[in-house]
Design a protein around this nucleic acid. Structure first.
Lengths: 315, 315
DNA sequence: AGTCACTGATAACTACATTCGATCAACCCG
DNA sequence: CGGGTTGATCGAATGTAGTTATCAGTGACT
């Protein structure tokens, strides 16, 4: 009493079969799919048929003129892609073991960090990991996270916490915010400024999308300021500082940006907040389970050392 | 200027190679591993060597007397297992598509739900999915969750929310708790009992580990009762009800349990709480991304229909 | 309606990877 | 110093997976 039409011996699918199927699922066209994965069309055709045979399921509805996936095919294509992704991760990890700190590392950095930390980062990489081909992409947090999860980027350097599942943060340091004022401002150059002072100030902010803008607004809220002072905004910290120098208001600057941005402008003063000063945490972020994760952690450790000379609290 | 000792052509590992490696990683013994996956020892030996060749990494340190994984091997074994797990999931999903609602379904049920819902569940399965081999396991929530994540169980029927990552809940219904009192108790048989009444009652509870016990305690806390009345506890709801009938105190019973547990005992009365009454939500739970997930969702839908006659709020 | 271009399927053949049984060499143990 | 166990190696048989060449069905255009 065996099942009726089941003469097929159930066996294990092969990776190339899954690759073939995934390619067909993507292109919905056998010849295109075949060239895409570098094999002949008959081979691919046979591979897909063989897979359907081994799984006992029709995956692809082919009318000579059109190809589309069966409902089962839709579901199994997802699984096939998952398998192939795992295999790719394995091979990548093998490569990472074989030759750590080589090849391309696509690093995403937020604009309010990039100009001030990149010198340190680039130096470190150049000195310590000369075979690492660091490719820097400066974007805002949301874009970076999208790039990370879609695989366009490998590693991010940004402000945390992110609270995004599947993304692991490797904290680097905490840095205080300082108050940047024009020369002659009542708070100019003071120390121990209470946060509540923010309530009465005309605060200049970055454009929408910059996490620093949101952090500044949060700090204001915590200081008891409920209105949102959106009068002027600037695309970059340098511009923002120029606006402050021009007397349009004051702004908050992360500690790492202060030296670069204010030293070249004698019109500015920086004031420190009272302890505990508002601060932000800067970290590396990678996909949880990234193939080169171990390297990223080592890089984070090396980076913490390299950042020690900076006026921040290294973690 | 090509890399020095790299004559090997980098190619793609095969699934059988990964299977072989995973087996060796598990057994740390070539012959055992070979028999475990049903292939000859030389074949397995060759497969592992071939994998090392394709990956360009030494995975296994073999001294003729001992086998152990290299650090790289440890890391890559994890990846290999992940690949194989994905493949297994794919095959299982294919099987599920090919023959839905057949084969074994290992269902875990908590003790405070099992006796009252299983008749409905078994009936439904028998009528609608006769080829489904339902295997019921009655355990407490913590054990069930462990069983689910380790793969010992496929589906759970329990009280939610669980808040466990990787576990998806398919809500079935909400049911009120009722107050069970002995005959002659001041609150006996009343309706619209305020929760605050719980403060003054001698409440009997189930043993540690039953989620119903924790829910009852939560309800008490919400009602403003801070002390934990742990005087007597019982291993099952039936026992608990007997204790109530014996005048030892009162207890909370989920609505689905009331008919069964109180009808056979004329010594008891049940009282309803004022709206909104304390309640619990009962749901199915499965691993996120379970191969037969679509079937479980359909089963949940069918179950909701089948439960409609019961005095609960079906979702 | 006929033809053409393009689709995926098939056939025949080849190459090579996988597997097996048999055997070998190293090692631990008594 | 054997005896037994370990993993590695060998050579042959098998089966898989790939190739090129060709076929057969379909829709579009004239």
């Amino acid at each position: 009493m065996r099942p009726p039409v089941n003469g097929a011996v159930r066996r294990r699918p092969s990776l190339s079969q899954l690759r073939a199927f995934a390619a067909v699922a993507e292109h919905l066209h056998f010849r295109d799919a075949a060239t895409a994965i570098g094999m002949s069309q008959p081979a691919l055709s046979g591979a897909v048929s063989a897979l359907e045979e081994t799984l006992g399921v029709t995956l692809v509805e082919r009318t000579t003129r059109k190809v589309l996936l069966s409902p089962a095919g839709e579901r199994l294509a997802v699984r096939a892609r998952a398998v192939l992704a795992e295999v790719a991760a394995l091979m990548e990890e093998a490569e990472a073991v074989r030759a750590p700190f080589t090849g391309a590392l696509r690093l995403g950095v937020i604009p309010t960090v990039a100009p001030y930390l990149l010198p340190t980062v680039l130096n470190l990489v150049h000195e310590r990991y000369p075979d690492l081909d660091l490719q820097v992409h400066e974007e805002q947090t949301a874009n970076l996270l999208d790039g990370l999860t879609t695989g366009r980027l490998d590693l991010l350097l940004l402000a945390v916490p992110l609270g995004v599942p599947g993304v692991m943060e490797l904290p680097l340091f905490d840095e205080d915010f300082v108050l940047v004022t024009p020369l002659g401002h009542e708070l100019g150059g003071q120390e121990g400024i209470p946060r509540e002072a923010l309530r009465a100030l005309r605060l200049l902010l970055l454009d929408e999308g910059h996490c620093l803008r949101d952090q500044a607004l949060d700090i204001c809220r915590e200081a008891g300021r409920d209105d949102v002072p959106v009068t002027t905004t600037a695309a970059g910290l340098s511009t923002l500082v120029q606006l402050v120098a021009g007397g349009l208001g004051v702004t908050l600057l992360p500690r790492t940006a202060v030296t670069v941005e204010t030293s070249r402008n004698p019109q500015l003063l920086t004031g420190r907040f009272a302890h505990p000063a508002p601060s932000r945490r800067v970290a590396l972020a990678m996909r949880t389970g990234a193939a080169r994760g171990a390297e990223y952690e080592e890089l984070a450790a090396a980076l913490r050392e390299a950042l020690r000379p900076l006026p921040v609290r290294v973690l």
